[in-house]
Nucleic acid binder design. Structure first.
Length: 561
RNA sequence: UGCGGGGUGGUCUAAUGGUAGGACAACGGUCUUUGAAGCCGUCCGUGGAGGUUCGAUUCCUCCCCCCGCAGCCA
């Protein structure tokens, strides 16, 4: 059959390339990828796209994926970052097995490759200052000028390179450069730096090295050392691909890995660059890398996002070469969809309004049975205490409600979820006009929420028993940036932060079971949203982060009027 | 005005010579012991001009627009 063979169809252009390579027997028809983060910050959802791509590609073609820390710049990197990165990759659901590597593992080998390049007359030590090198590089339209040190003998270059390693020269005094072509139309190829002197302590190799390889030199060789077949990276490295290939071919590396570039992820209402995220942290615009408003994996985790929802998102956005910005609504959709399936439903009230049920006996206490998830019987049921005084959401009562308002108002009857029909008989206000208390009657025949006489009500409200209310602090999050594309335009992106990205509600209450919620536990607060218990919780005050709100069509109706 | 990439509904993404499809968003309806979810429907697209062809998103030519590159960052 000619049918689009289900499993074998390439799911993106990279898989198309790989399938062609497999067919042609390239790399022995094996696939080996790697995720190569620099440990200079926390992973964000943009990295998740790359992680998912690399790991699932390997999985799909029965290959392997390595985790490799690209740690060639000790001044910016540290062990805190490597640990958080490993934690985040694991949390996302991927395993690198025994294949945890560091570019710094290869420093000695890399040094040897550099010597080989020098002996072949393909690299030289340049004494020009950084300023001079920059000046002589030329421009986009003008060729560069050869360095006066470009034609040193191989022996002299080897000796100088050894001296660089031995610490004979200060930072910046010399640099090892590839000898390619100072008039190349691709500026990357104008004798790029391969090694620089940096008398910095490295988080893994300590003070052993005074010279460190540059990305372009280290990356392609690390890939080849690990037997990587397809080296997947982002678009901004496209110009570097000729250099990637030049180094490997100059060193006569067999079966050179193939670099393939794809478009990095952008999302509306946030920023995804480590530099910018670091600034938000350093300038205290957020509480840290794991602030629930941050697009970091640690932030999303704390916010209540599940690894499954993030993986689903990464699959849905696709992999292509077109620059694109994904609507953050898609991310939110993914987490709602996942949580809708799994989250236990409970009742909580963000702004409590007391309701006294006048005809309910004062000393009476009963337990109402409530299902935990209407779409999943296995989630079971729980008991919720019920007595004369309860709390409902302040916004669920209107003194003078419009016709389309289905909730409580004078003389109106509604259902208390799982419990009884109640009817508003009266209410009281304080001097300022604020409603202070609602007085209702209930219909004992409607226990469980059904009326035997077939009487219908339009609204169903969540409620919390006043005597057993668990005090909650709720943190309501909105987009970090008010502007959909904070990086566009000339203004500093920080000026586009959303001043209302965090709203803290201290007086909320919830069902008694919420008092004991463990950090990371997720619930759907009926009619309100998905909430995740936070590590800031303390006895007497459970803290919840709102992961995502539920759709609110009443808000829409009332807003458009 | 160098080189390298890229242009499909509002946003992503399929279709590679044969009915432009899907998702998210928006809008409307339906259902409902969550005004949730679900279900149904609507709106909306091949950057432009030529050419080849019975037929072009796909192939050719020219043009336009967008992104990246001048770190001893990655």
């Amino acid at each position: 059959m000619e049918e689009k063979n289900a499993g074998a169809a390439p799911s993106n252009f990279i898989h198309g390339i790989i399938e062609r390579d497999i067919e042609q027997g390239l790399y022995g028809s094996k696939v080996h990828t790697r995720f190569p983060p620099e440990p200079n910050g926390y992973l964000h959802i943009g990295h998740a796209k790359s992680i998912c791509l690399n790991f699932t590609t390997a999985l799909k073609y029965k290959g392997l994926c390595n985790l490799r820390f690209d740690d060639t710049n000790p001044e910016k990197e540290n062990a805190e970052y490597t640990e958080s990165i490993m934690e985040d990759v694991k949390w996302l659901g991927f395993a690198w097995g025994e294949r945890l590597f560091y570019t710094s593992d290869y420093f000695e080998k890399l040094y040897g490759y550099a010597e080989t390049l020098i002996r072949k007359g393909l690299a030289y030590v340049d004494d020009q200052s950084g300023e001079e090198i920059k000046k002589n590089r030329g421009t986009l339209t003008e060729a560069g000028k050869d360095s006066p040190f470009r034609n040193r003998s191989a022996d002299e270059n080897i000796q100088l390179f050894h001296e660089m390693r031995d610490g004979k020269y200060p930072d910046g005094a010399k640099v090892l450069r590839a000898k390619i072509d100072m008039s190349h139309s691709n500026i990357t190829m104008r004798d790029p730096a391969l090694y620089r002197i940096k008398r910095a302590s490295h988080h893994r190799t300590g003070d052993k090295w005074r010279i460190y390889p540059m990305y372009d030199f280290a990356h392609c060789l690390s890939d080849s050392i690990e037997g990587i077949t397809h080296s997947i990276c982002t678009l901004e490295f496209e110009n570097n691909r000729p250099l990637y290939d030049w180094i490997l071919s100059s060193l006569e590396i067999l079966m050179p890995p193939k670099q393939i570039e794809f478009a990095r992820l952008n999302i509306t209402h946030t920023v995804l660059s480590k530099r910018k995220l670091l600034r938000l942290v350093k300038e205290n615009h957020v509480s840290g890398w794991d602030d629930p408003r941050m697009p970091t994996l640690s932030g999303l985790r704390r916010r209540g996002y599940t690894p499954e929802s993030i993986r689903d998102f990464c699959e849905r956005i696709g992999v292509a070469k077109t620059n694109s910005t994904i609507d953050i609504a898609l991310l939110e959709h993914c987490v709602r969809e996942d949580l809708n399936r799994r989250a236990r439903r409970v009742m909580a009230v963000l702004e409590p309004l007391k309701v006294v049920i006048e005809n309910y006996p004062g000393g009476k206490n009963e337990e109402i049975e409530a299902v935990n998830n209407p779409d999943d019987e296995r989630a079971g049921t729980r008991k919720v205490p019920f007595s004369k005084e309860i709390y409902i959401e302040r916004s669920d009562f209107m003194e003078d409600p419009p016709k389309k308002f289905f909730r409580l108002g004078p003389g109106r009857e509604v259902r208390l979820k799982h419990a009884y029909y109640v009817k508003c008989e009266s209410f009281t206000k304080d001097a300022s006009g604020k409603i202070t208390e609602i007085r209702c009657s209930y219909d004992p025949a409607t226990r469980g929420g059904d009326s035997p006489d077939g009487r219908k009500v339009k609204g169903t409200l969540q409620w919390v028993p006043a005597a057993h209310a668990a005090p909650l602090e709720i943190r309501l999050y909105d987009h970090l940036f008010a502007s959909p594309e904070p990086e566009s335009g000339d203004d500093d992106f920080v000026s586009k932060l959303n001043p209302d990205s965090l709203k803290i509600i201290t007086g909320a209450v919830g069902e008694p079971c919420l008092a004991g919620a463990e950090p990371g536990e997720t619930f759907q607060f009926l009619r309100t949203g998905y909430f995740c218990a936070d590590k800031d919780s303390r006895p007497g005050k459970t803290v919840f982060n709102r992961t995502a709100a539920l759709r609110d069509s009443w808000a829409k109706i009332s807003n458009t009027k």
